[in-house]
Amino acid sequence: MKVGLFIPCYINAIYPEVGVASYKLLKAVGMDVDYPLDQTCCGQPMANAGFEKESYAMAMRMEELFKAYDYVVGPSASCVAFVKEYHPGILKEGNHVCSNAGKIYDICEFLHDVVKPASLSAEFPHKVSIHNSCHGVRELNLSSPSERNIPYYNKLRNLLALVKGIEIFEPKRIDECCGFGGMFSIEEPEVSVCMAQDKVADHISTGAEYITGADSSCLMHMQGVIERENLPIKTIHIVQILATGL
């Protein structure tokens, strides 16, 4: 199975270590992984701000880059969800049928649903609080949305359970938004900051040392508040935990 690694723009620029961990992890579970060079952005920032049609070239470029792969896998639930849910509509304008939508996975989803590893070599003797991010939960079904009356499940928790020494927690408001929302964070800065402060406080109240999740964007947002207020918790992308020891 040929896997094309999808590294969204801000992970490329700010969190390359998340990309590295993703690569190692996929490799370790036996995937034939490749990174098609010179990726940029999926177009979500412009689209959420109201300029969806400006994302056409980016969506088209992603189609080209990942043409040769069986799967597209990325460590960012929100970007993956955007490709899956919105690229088909965007590309329809140019009469192009989106092929990525059918084969793109968030890395947690991919590991959990496709690879299904029985064990991992990872070890992380720490308390972590899972950040169930909006698009991961409500677009990619990474965990049961708290609004719905369906049995509880959490793919992130299941994967973390394979890690030795880890203690897993979830915040009281289990999947409330951290207030990032792309351009929302600067268009509504006061509300956005308040949401992030509340969210970080909720994570801290679990007693966790780390906030972990499938979206670096949410983690980046909360990290901004943690650093500003010098709060006693750290952020770490879930793949960095799953790839420890690799």
Binding site: E147, C177, E188
Partner: peptide, 10 residues
């Protein structure tokens, strides 16, 4: 006034 969290839709 929306972070697109989609809680409302659910």
């Amino acid at each position: 006034a929306c972070s697109l969290c989609l809680s409302c839709s659910n």
